[in-house]
Amino acid sequence: MNTKRILHSTEFYIAIIAALFCMIVQIKSGQFFTGNNIVDLLRSFTIPAMFCLGEMMILISGNTDVSFPAIASVSMYVVCTVFDGVFTNPLMFFLMAMLIGLALGAINGIIIAYFKFPALIVTLGTSSLCFGIMQGVFNSKEEPLGEVLYRVGEMKLFSVTNPQSGLTSDMPVLVLAMAALFVLGWFILNKTMLGRGIYAIGGDAIAAERAGFNVFATQMFIYCFSGCMAGMIGVMRATMMLAVHPNNLEGMEMTVIAACVLGGVRITGGKGTVIGAILGMVLMTVISNSLILLGISTQWQKVFTGIIIIIGTAVSAIQTKKNEKKLAVKMAAA
């Protein structure tokens, strides 16, 4: 990639904006670039950033999924309560959750890919189903985490103590899993035919089909992948919080979609990069976690999220419009 292309990419601007924002917070509070603040930021970044991966694939394919928090919650709750004490190997819990998530994702996939319904409406329905099953059938409530997973949650890479405030933050092991997942996502999207198929469908599903891509199979893959990841992330969340909170992922879809779009993933499909989505999430995390450092009440957090989504999407919408006009002028001239 040449320098000019880098300078014109959304990712570059997002990185600059994020860096500027960090500087402002540092200048105002003097607390931003402290070890424990960075670790805390990473802690709250991990879960939503991993969600970004599945969601961005769905966005690139031209659809919107809002069911992943529900899939994550229900898989996590079932695994952590029903299977508590069944397994001694923590990996089995993750595997179980991934299987449940995969099944739920497959349901989404079949309905969306076979009938070609708008994924937003379908996933609103399945999301309500999942939360209903968790709260009704399993009668969910806050519960302590089982011993096996508790030990996973206590594992840490290192701890950092802030000499000024005396606060200590632990770097969870799961950060490594997140990094691995990013590489996997990047590999699928850029280095496999499957990944190119996702972009092709998002650009134009009919053209992709004519070009020989199996649209049904590709769509099935993204919803299964997203569901499977959601199941795993749900259990990771429980280990990070050291408790089973059935409802506190609700509403995360908004942050995740906003981050993806901010990072240059086009909501109408066909465009987006893993790096962009990650940077989008960095910006979202930094902003929402730094409001306190800036002396702004956390009550304003939702307002900021809204403004970020609107401005972020407006910029890309206006750019698309401009490009279309340029194209039209070029075509008229030719």
Binding site: M254, A258, V261, I267, K302, V303, I309, T313, I318, K321
Partner: peptide
């Protein structure tokens, strides 16, 4: 306005304003 004039797809535009309106209600 943001859907038709700015050109943001309705899903995203109203997702943004949803957060905005709820945010103001919380404030």
């Amino acid at each position: 306005f943001i859907i038709s004039k700015v050109g943001i797809p309705p899903i995203l535009a109203t997702l943004g304003t949803q957060a905005l309106f709820q945010g103001f209600a919380i404030v």
